[in-house]
Design a protein around this nucleic acid. Structure first.
Lengths: 144, 144
DNA sequence: CTACTTGCAAACTTTTTGCTTGCGA
DNA sequence: TCGCAAGCAAAAAGTTTGCAAGTAG
């Protein structure tokens, strides 16, 4: 992918006093350039080659920073570590219960349902998350 | 709440060779009788009074058992430990981003959307989870 | 130059596991 | 009695924190 979106995001960060370091750039650009929804550890191993001395703490620090800046989303499931999604456009997720793969499901947000939930519960809702669980195509074939 | 639903659930368990112990019964009946979506530790502290010697491992073992039997659902969020829901009827959740409270939002399942996701992603979907994030009524008032 | 960041290691939290004793059926 | 379950403690896994040294702006 082009570096444009990454540079734009980094620019946004820098305007609020955040510094640009090679590690930070690498983490963000890896996340924004993949649809694999990696764990912190997967990011760590991916970047290890280029940053042999990088520590996991740096990964976590930056993921937290990106999350707070709204550049990245954290996805958690019961039986595993958090996964991170550098795609913040509208979409939901399908999770394979067999191989844990996460696949994007692009779909317009359920705004009507948010309003419904507001009415029913009295909450002021500002976001929602929808995950589907099932078996991916690859794992379906392996069953044969 | 009445113990009927609990007894029914326990009966279902027992028919598959699972024994009824006082701890097991207490954990399940507490979960089925609350809408507070407690963590394992909260369950532990709640039952501590009646079972001073109970260990956390017992809580976890039983929660796992209940989950596998479909009597209980596990809810996970990024920044905290798992929460457990003894209500397995159709509903979604609203999570307060301020006080972390979880409130049920009864709503018929989005079966149409499951089919849509199947078509788009090639998954065979068998369930989904929908969470709304926002501010609950109590926390809205505290802001004033 | 001076904070912000990194790297490192230790600490912490949550959950799981191994093993012995206890107890439900 | 027999085998599942509880209790206990230690281990595992993921994430956070404190601090010294490095570096971006």
């Amino acid at each position: 992918m082009s570096t444009e979106r990454v540079d734009l995001a980094i620019g946004k960060l820098r305007s609020s006093g955040v510094r640009l370091t090679p590690q930070r750039y690498a983490i963000l650009s890896f996340l924004m350039g993949t649809t694999s929804h990696p764990t912190a550890d997967e990011i760590y191993r991916e970047l290890e080659e280029n940053f042999p001395n990088m520590s996991v703490a740096t990964i976590y620090n930056n993921l937290k920073l990106f999350k707070e800046a709204g550049l990245v989303r954290e996805l958690t499931f019961g039986d595993a570590s958090s996964r991170f999604d550098g795609n913040t456009t509208d979409h939901y997720h399908c999770i394979c219960v067999s191989c844990q793969r996460i696949v994007d499901f692009p779909y317009p947000p359920l705004s009507g349902l948010e309003q419904e939930a507001q009415k029913t519960t009295g909450f002021v809702i500002d976001s929602h998350r929808l995950d589907f669980f099932g078996v991916c195509e690859t794992c379906q074939q392996e069953k044969n």
